[in-house]
């Protein structure tokens, strides 16, 4: 085991959060095998029930099994969280690398564009994008992804600026390496750490943004269960069937908590001197 991996494995937070996240991911992947019922099947006679042996977490207003919906919800929420962050990471990295490495007018143009996106109120921007594209899972992902691009661009650009004049980059340039090679082989590896940290935090942010869009009626489309959508739907039944809001909230809290703690812990390991940045 190399020392790096060792430090990972010794960190209790990382191990625990890693296990939790892995379990959630597994549950999401194998949802059809684990879930006791079809998440959209309506048991007419069992509406708004509390826990029972058949419905461990109870049922919702249609008589759908909450446990199954939460398991399938993991799928939707993780897909939304991870895919939208991937979009932000890809574009953020490209923009950030280009802006940071080439500097000058490219830098100003890109960064001004990012400032524009950044100054746009987040929820409203996502809402407007979804409204323009039409509702649906991929459009929601796209909207959340676009909203987060500026943060990643800034993160990457900052990292690039801090290494681009270091000796090894200079020497790569000196031996005539191609720009693309320098960017991706010499510089990019240095921005992976901040990207990883920022990414794990952004995933939880994305899951929350999706829930806000659901609250405004433009998140994931029913009957697909997303945790945010379930919570926003459950508000109407808070007093009739508290389980409807409690269980998805618990699932969401655990997941977001795990992502955040995971991100923090990685930051502490990779960059112990700059815990705050």
């Amino acid at each position: 085991m190399n020392p790096f991996t060792k430090r990972f494995m010794q960190n209790k937070t990382i191990v625990v959060c890693g296990i939790i996240l892995a379990l959630i991911a597994l549950a999401a992947m194998f949802a059809p095998l684990i879930a006791p019922h079809d998440p959209t099947e309506m048991f007419q006679e069992n509406r708004l029930e509390s826990s029972s042996s058949n419905f461990l977490f109870g049922t919702d207003q249609f008589g759908r099994d909450l446990l199954s919906r939460i398991i399938y919800g993991a799928r939707v929420s993780l897909i939304v969280g991870i895919s939208s962050v991937l979009i932000s990471v890809v574009f953020g990295t490209i923009f950030g690398l280009v802006a940071g490495y080439f500097g000058r007018w490219l830098d100003s143009v890109i960064m001004r564009c990012m400032d524009i996106l950044f100054a746009f109120p987040e929820i409203l921007l996502a809402l407007a994008i979804v409204a323009a594209l039409g509702p649906g899972t991929w459009n929601t992902i796209l909207a959340i992804g676009i909203v987060n691009i500026p943060i990643f661009t800034r993160t990457v650009r900052g990292a690039v600026l801090s290494v681009k004049n270091l000796e090894y980059v200079e020497s790569a340039r000196a031996i005539g390496a191609k720009t693309g090679r320098i960017l991706f082989l010499e510089i990019f590896p240095n921005v992976t750490a901040p990207l990883l940290v920022q990414g794990s935090l952004a995933i939880s942010g994305a899951i929350l943004t999706e829930s806000a869009l659901s609250f405004l009626g433009l998140g994931i489309q029913p009957p697909d269960p997303s945790w945010g959508g379930m919570i926003s739907e459950a508000r109407r039944y808070m007093e009739l069937a508290p389980g409807m809001i409690v269980w998805p909230s618990v699932a969401m809290t655990i997941t977001i908590l795990a992502f955040n703690l995971f991100g923090d812990a990685i930051r502490d390991i990779l960059d112990p001197r700059h815990r705050g940045k």
Partner: peptide
């Protein structure tokens, strides 16, 4: 059937 929830104006 796929459900499409449209915001009011839409």
């Amino acid at each position: 059937a796929e459900i499409k929830q449209l915001e009011w104006a839409n």
